[in-house]
């Protein structure tokens, strides 16, 4: 029975997250437009774009290799696999034992490497520029991520996402300044990993500023659809991760509980909407920073994570 419930939860979770991903992207875009005084495209526009792109045959550059054809599937596959591991409305999913924070970071890195290789495959200037910048930003984002994970792991005693989320939902830990600092660090990493303002601009095609878009310039048709879907899934994953760790309220416990699941879905939708609103507001309020200020931005995230860990050591020492 529990096994069956776990499988059902997992399938519902996947359906929910896959359905939410285009909406998250479209919703953030719509909210941003509204905040800037524009009407903006319909929130379902990304879904329409995807279905349009899917029905087109891709055009590959003449010297593209099999890397260009395989990388979109690898990126989308790793994104789906990673998003399947982050709990949304209920805990105790079938894949919960796999859901380790380091593994999720590894899967995201795999998607990133696939994209960088695709950017280098045709040998164009922009692809290489984007790949070099993306991998360099990651070099600063990963330490910040790991130090933030460190605070979570010390408090929860594990890097397993399901167990940590359950512990935080209990509320036995109270308010923790270390978790607040880890949250700030994770927010900065999330902004960088998802190519959002101020690190990158998802709407730009201006050569000198683009990072993420530069790598997929040569993609078209279903390949472009896959890249867009992978990006949407990654954004959803990060928001869901933040929601699961730092706003764990309303999540249904493990086991078969349709009523709690309904509550969980509602709570999750509300949390995601709030996070989207916050992201849109943040992006509207801030300007894109110069490429070489990004290390500083992520370095601050890292140092705040370190600060959180130090304060945590202090407070556990006093307990």
């Amino acid at each position: 029975m529990t096994a069956l419930a776990a499988v059902i939860t997992q399938l519902l979770h996947l359906a929910l997250v896959l359905a939410a991903a285009p909406l998250v992207v479209g919703g953030v875009r719509w909210l941003k437009a509204r905040m800037m005084g524009r009407r903006g495209p319909h929130p379902l526009q990304p879904l329409r774009d995807l279905s349009k792109l899917l029905s087109k045959r891709p055009v590959l550059a003449e010297n593209a290799s099999w890397i260009s054809r395989a990388a979109p599937y690898a990126a989308a596959g790793t994104a789906v696999a990673a998003v399947a591991l982050v709990p949304s409305f209920a805990r105790g999913m079938a894949f919960a034992p796999l859901g380790d924070l380091l593994l999720i970071a590894g899967l995201l890195a795999a998607g990133r490497v696939a994209m960088a290789l695709a950017g280098l495959d045709v040998g164009t200037a922009f692809g290489g520029l984007g790949a070099a910048r993306e991998m360099s930003f990651a070099a600063f984002a990963e330490p910040a991520l790991l130090v933030a994970v460190l605070s979570v792991a010390i408090l929860a005693g594990t890097t397993g996402l399901d167990a940590a989320a359950a512990l935080f939902q209990d509320g036995a830990l109270g308010l923790r300044v270390s978790l607040a600092l880890a949250l700030i660090a994770l927010l900065a990493v999330a902004v960088a990993e998802n190519a959002r303002i101020p690190v990158d601009n998802p709407a730009t095609h201006l050569e000198l500023t683009m990072v993420h878009e530069a790598m997929i310039l040569e993609a078209s048709g279903r390949h472009l659809a896959l890249w867009e879907a992978a990006a949407a899934l990654r954004l959803t994953l990060w928001l869901a991760l933040l929601a699961a760790l730092f706003v764990p309220f309303g999540t249904a416990p493990a086991g078969f509980a349709p009523l709690a699941w309904a509550v969980g879905v509602l709570a999750w939708v509300a949390k995601m909407a709030a996070l989207c609103l916050a992201l849109a507001a943040f992006e509207s309020a801030i300007a894109k920073m110069r490429v070489f200020r990004v290390p500083e931005f992520l370095g601050v995230a890292l140092l705040l994570g370190v600060l959180g860990a130090i304060l945590l050591f202090v407070s556990t020492r006093l307990a």
Partner: peptide, 18 residues
């Protein structure tokens, strides 16, 4: 440690430091 009195004070102090 672990009481609200401590936690909130810690949080506010952490905010000042931040």
């Amino acid at each position: 440690f672990g009481t609200p009195a401590y936690d909130v004070a810690h949080l506010l102090g952490g905010g000042v430091l931040l």
